[in-house]
Nucleic acid binder design. Structure first.
Length: 889
RNA sequence: GCCCGGGUGGCGGAACAGGUAGACGCAACGGACUUAAAAUCCGUUAGAUUGAAAAAUCUGUGCCGGUUCAAAUCCGGCCCCGGGCACCA
């Protein structure tokens, strides 16, 4: 069934099709396009002929095209359609280039929405999830994606997640998993942990209660052990978008600086700074509310205790911490300056993050803007120790903002006169001699907390024994299976109340023990699923030899929202597996295409309790003022106002997804696919609008009718390029220019919108021509053959039928991509634009190979150009070959 | 608040390495076909000015400034929108 890639499909590959091969019985082609008939017939054929199954084979290059697996939220939305259509186009395009392609699909099936659905409707998350998968799988099939369904995985199945557990234990063996406390959002009313998404303005979304931060013991994966490698390896990812690499580099956030110890009665307070040159300007030290020094101070001082307590209110997200008002109190503790021995006060401040560096900073108000504002607010002193290399020296009394640039040191004793860089090195050296610090590199990246106090996730394979402590579940007892019949009610993890799950015996001492009831972060599931597609039927190993054939992924496609977390975790996980000898590569995704989000309006209401409810855009009516401007919206159900939340990503949680099914039912899959591709280039954000779907449908109908008219006019004769007249040559040139353009747009640029536009232009040119001569019809035969092949990756169903009508027995899916004939594209004369002083003043036609001088002379002779240069001296003539002439006067 | 993108006609977008701004499509308007409508086909469509017309000129790519023979594209500053910020996925 698989084509031998060494055989070209046509004897003369420059001329696309000479004579139909007669495989089709000559009957009249139907005049009108029936999308649903086409789609059903084509899908059945692909299935019947086994064209969707990928097999490991040695001949020909493999091409593994992967789309990020969907969360089974219930129905596909337009973001999915966009993602999977792009993937399908690239897969089919590569298949037509003779590659052995794999395009799998699966389900990111654990997660919060299943629990929310359970709370709302009382249905078990497992049941809800499996029903959703069944429905969405049907939707994906109806869109005609060339997916090898025999490799489907669902991350909520024990045969999948047992390998999460297995690898977790291997990481535990190697010290890459450890336990420590971490902060979570706590809803005091529901007595439950909330996700950051469920905290809105510091309140729980269901109860409206003010959220508190709580400390819980959790498992962490040591991604920081790979921080440096994950950062430096970005340079090698030539197939990744620059912006994604920049985001990851900033996220890892490597900083080279100096660690400084401030001695005090109870020991040494460590801080980290990238500006050790400003050390002599430090006038106080600030610590995070969770810092041991702050907690000690709180035990002695009621005011500090109250402040530390206040810091616990609100959520844990960085965005929330970073936008809150900067506040602090004196800890009532003092430290000594490591160089001057000066006594400096310690403050407890909410802007210091415990998770970064040492959870403490030296404050230099004259040279750090945040310290400056804090010092002004609390009347703390300010000392200028760096002046700009040129310009005025800032005066402490008159400063209106911190001077944060590098410069020359002043008021710094023996360091006076040194530049910032020299001073940093010298100060680091002195600290090192005094054993109070030295150079240090820190990362913004934190270890990956993987514990979730939730039911619908992969159980963490640990048993807690009073005698033996935390004991790993033995490999032979894996998987630890999650009971699928529990129904969360919003008050904590039902697993923690499930006696049948919790009770077990300690594998070490045999005494009764308790299972861990936390489950793993769902990012664990999605950190390696792309490996499992290669070998999902192996029940004795996580990966096998087939992984070495298919991986790494040649093309990965998914939303830009995953630019950091998912992609970084996957890169980390792959390295762990490499170091365990399970895979031979470090980077799982060779090429990455990050698709822009599909946005839609967000509407919501706050409930009486302070919670929030989202409404679908088709549940509301928009109101406009007399000038046609948007002026609010009301709910259809009760005609009362709803709040507008702006544009946002289509998602289950915001209730603003648009189900493509109605469009597929009405217009067919090809129209929906074509519309999504034509709407915008893939990387661009797309605000949802349905207008344009009709246009996509109209184009397919026009194409169908054009091919039908051509086919029904009877057999064609052999194309003889030498026998063509000028018009026929011009049309044929357009065919081959279009082949070049579309090949480049799909294969290199990924701009499917311009590829479609180019084919539309060619069809427009074709339908304007009424040349019925034998050679005229031969050119058209070549044109329709080319168009069918060029569109095949994008709208495969209609092309399957057109291909058959054009006389081919083999499926269009297995046909070879057309090659442009360079000879057909040659032009004799070209048109150039002529500018005078950069403004367009005329056009001239010249021979394609004309030299600069004759081009310039032709330009200067153009009548309108002469009008503008008359009576003025021509100072310069810029000739851009093939493009334009600019006359400067 | 921090990091990363984006902003072009009524709308989606095109202009790929600094060289014709508005390809292609939607919507709108006018016409053909039709008893009529739908569908289809043909035409017009950035704004302004001049002209009977052909055509020509001016302005114009979020805002302000700069570099260049030439800027949507490069540089500096600002505004707005979107994505991410570690428990949404």
């Amino acid at each position: 069934m698989v084509r031998d890639s060494s055989q070209p499909p046509f004897a003369n590959s420059h001329i696309l099709l000479l004579i139909p091969d007669g495989a089709k019985q000559r009957t009249t082609m139907q005049a009108s396009y029936d999308a649903h008939l086409c789609e059903q017939t084509a899908q059945q054929r692909w299935e019947r002929e086994g064209l969707l199954h990928a097999r490991e084979q040695s001949d020909g290059d493999k091409y593994y095209c992967l789309c990020m697996l969907p969360y089974p939220s219930g129905r596909l939305h337009m973001g999915h359609v966009r993602n999977y259509t792009i993937g399908d186009v690239l897969t089919r395009f590569q298949r037509m280039h003779g590659r052995n392609v794999l395009q799998p699909m699966g389900w990111d099936a654990f997660g919060l929405p299943a629990e929310n659905a359970a709370i709302k409707n009382g249905v078990a998350p497992a049941r809800w999830t499996y029903d959703n998968i069944a429905y969405m799988r049907r939707q994906l099939r109806s869109l005609g994606f060339a997916i090898d369904w025999s490799r489907e995985v669902a991350t909520c199945r024990p045969e999948y997640y047992r390998w999460n557990q297995w690898l977790f234990l291997r990481m535990l063996d190697r010290g890459l998993v450890y336990r420590k406390t971490g902060s979570v959002n706590w809803d005091p009313v529901d007595q439950t942990v909330l996700a950051n998404e469920q905290v809105i303005d510091g309140r729980g979304w269901r109860t409206g209660a003010t959220v508190e931060r709580r400390e819980l013991p959790m498992y962490y994966m040591k991604i920081t052990a790979y921080a440096d490698e994950l950062l430096t390896a970005l340079d090698g990812l030539a197939g990744w978008p620059e912006r994604v690499k920049t985001m990851q580099a900033n996220w890892i956030g490597r900083s080279e600086g100096v660690e400084i110890g401030f001695p005090h009665d109870g020991g040494v307070l460590k801080v980290f700074t990238t500006r050790a040159d400003t050390l002599l300007g430090a006038t106080y030290v600030a610590v995070a509310a969770e810092h041991p020094l702050a907690l000690q101070a709180a035990a002695r001082d009621a005011r500090v205790a109250a402040f530390v307590d206040a810091c616990r209110r609100g959520g844990v997200s960085e965005a929330e911490l970073a936008t809150q008002e900067k506040e602090g109190v004196p800890a009532g503790v003092f430290v000594r300056h490591p160089l001057t021995d000066e006594k400096l006060p310690v403050w407890v401040a909410n802007y210091v993050l415990m998770a970064y560096g040492e959870g403490a900073v030296m404050a230099v108000p004259a040279h750090d803007q945040r310290d400056f504002e804090f010092a002004r607010k609390h009347g703390l002193p300010l000392r200028v120790v760096v002046r700009p290399a040129a310009g005025e020296t800032p005066q402490a009394e008159t400063l209106t903002e911190a001077f944060t640039g590098d410069g020359v040191l002043i008021n710094s004793g023996r360091y006076d006169g040194l530049g910032s860089a020299q001073a940093m090195a010298a100060i680091a050296a002195e600290l090192h001699t005094r054993k109070l610090g030295g150079k240090r590199t820190v990362y913004r990246l934190r270890d990956w907390g993987v514990s979730r106090q939730r039911y619908w996730g992969c159980p963490i394979p640990i048993i807690h024994c009073d005698a033996c402590g935390d004991v790993p579940v033995p490999d032979e007892d894996l998987p630890v299976v999650l009971p699928e019949d529990l129904v969360p009610d919003g008050s904590g993890n039902p697993l923690a109340k499930c006696e049948a799950f919790i009770h077990c015996t300690c594998p070490r001492c045999g005494k009764p023990a308790r299972r861990e009831t936390d489950t793993l972060d769902t990012f664990v599931d999605s950190s390696w699923y792309y490996l499992r597609y290669a070998c999902r039927d192996n029940d004795t190993a996580m990966v096998d030899g087939r992984v070495h054939y298919w991986l790494p992924v040649d093309q990965y496609i998914g939303g830009i929202e995953h630019a950091i977390l998912h992609l970084l975790y996957s890169r980390f996980w792959t390295r762990v597996m490499r170091d365990l000898g399970l895979v031979k590569f470090a980077e799982p995704f060779t090429n990455l295409l990050t698709q822009g989000m599909v946005l839609n309006h967000i509407f919501f209401r706050k409930t009486a309790a302070g919670g929030i409810t989202y409404y679908s855009p088709d549940e509301v009516v928009l109101r406009h003022d007399e000038r046609g401007q948007f002026a609010g919206a009301t709910l259809k159900a009760d005609a009362r106002p709803v709040e507008y939340g702006g544009m946002g990503t289509m998602s289950k949680s915001k209730n603003n997804g648009v189900d493509p099914q109605a469009l597929v039912d009405k217009y067919g899959a090809d129209t929906v696919r074509l519309f999504m591709l034509f709407a915008a280039p893939p990387e661009q954000t797309l605000e949802w609008s349905e207008s344009g779907v009709e246009g996509a449908q109209r184009f397919l109908k026009r194409l169908w009718k054009a091919v039908a008219d051509h086919v029904n006019a009877g057999p064609v004769t052999l194309l003889e390029p030498a026998a063509l007249d000028a018009l026929q040559r011009a049309l044929r040139r357009r065919i081959h220019e279009t082949i070049t353009k579309v090949s480049d747009d799909i294969g290199r640029r990924y701009t499917f919108n311009t590829a479609v536009a180019a084919v539309m232009e060619l069809l427009n040119a074709l339908t304007r021509s009424d040349d019925a001569t034998p050679q005229g019809r031969a050119v058209k035969q070549e044109a329709y053959t080319a168009i069918t092949l060029l569109l095949c990756p994008m709208v495969p169903h209609i092309c399957e039928t057109l291909w058959r009508e054009l006389g081919h027995a083999e499926s269009a899916m297995m046909a070879r991509w057309p090659r442009a004939d360079a000879a057909a594209r040659v032009r004799e004369r070209i048109e150039l634009v002529v500018q005078v002083n950069g403004k367009l003043r005329g056009r001239v036609a010249v021979a394609a190979d004309a030299d600069r001088e004759s081009v310039a002379n032709a330009a200067l002779a153009e009548p309108n150009v002469r009008r503008f240069i008359e009576g003025r001296a021509v100072r310069k003539v810029v000739v851009v070959p093939g493009k334009l002439v600019n006359v400067v006067v």
